[in-house]
């Protein structure tokens, strides 16, 4: 049940930005998996990491704690691993924000394993929207991104991997 206290916490969580993608909230990225009031009145927030080793997970917990501290409500953050985080949880609006910030969003569904089967995935350039791009490295500036370059406008860019 969403009580008034839970709703207030949720509104605060919707303002917490991802430290690596500071134009997206942790809610938009699908990292908040639940928020509910326990029997003793504590608000429990379920957080799931994007990648197992994502160093931002600790920073995000600290940011949530800092954002909630003025509310003087008892809360705890529990890190959960199931169900496994997927880029399918990133909304179309959030994908559009990535594009506007120079990051090619994940294309399609995580069910598409094109890259893993050795096929090149079509990733349009976020700058010129050209479709003629090349994979420079499957591992980019953070665990969740691959490094691409546009053959048309030469823009190097990050692609948020379909995961």
């Amino acid at each position: 049940m969403v009580t008034e206290r839970v709703a207030r916490v949720q509104r605060v969580l919707e303002q917490v930005m991802d430290p690596e993608l500071p134009f997206l909230t942790v809610t938009e990225l699908g990292m908040i998996r639940g928020c509910s009031e326990l029997e003793d009145g504590t608000i429990e927030i379920l957080l799931t990491p994007t990648y197992s080793g994502c160093p931002a997970t600790d920073a995000i917990q600290e940011d949530i704690e800092a954002a909630l501290s003025p509310m003087e409500t008892r809360f705890k953050i529990r890190v959960v691993h199931a169900p496994t985080w997927t880029t399918d949880w990133i909304s179309d609006a959030a994908r559009e924000k990535m594009r506007q910030n120079g990051i090619a969003p994940p294309e399609g569904s995580s069910a598409d394993k094109a890259f893993l089967l050795g096929k090149a995935q079509e990733v349009p350039c976020p700058r010129c929207n050209g479709k003629d791009t090349k994979l420079v490295s499957p591992f980019g500036s953070t665990a969740c991104k691959a490094h691409y370059q546009c053959n048309a406008c030469a823009e190097p860019f990050d692609h948020f991997k379909c995961f």
């Binding site: 490295s137 591992f139 665990a143």
Partner: peptide
């Protein structure tokens, strides 16, 4: 540079798995 980043990324994934 790309391989440096790739191997470090893989190390980070493994470290995350190890921590859990």
């Amino acid at each position: 540079l790309e391989e440096d980043i790739a191997l470090s990324n893989i190390a980070l994934d493994l470290l995350g798995q190890a921590r859990a």
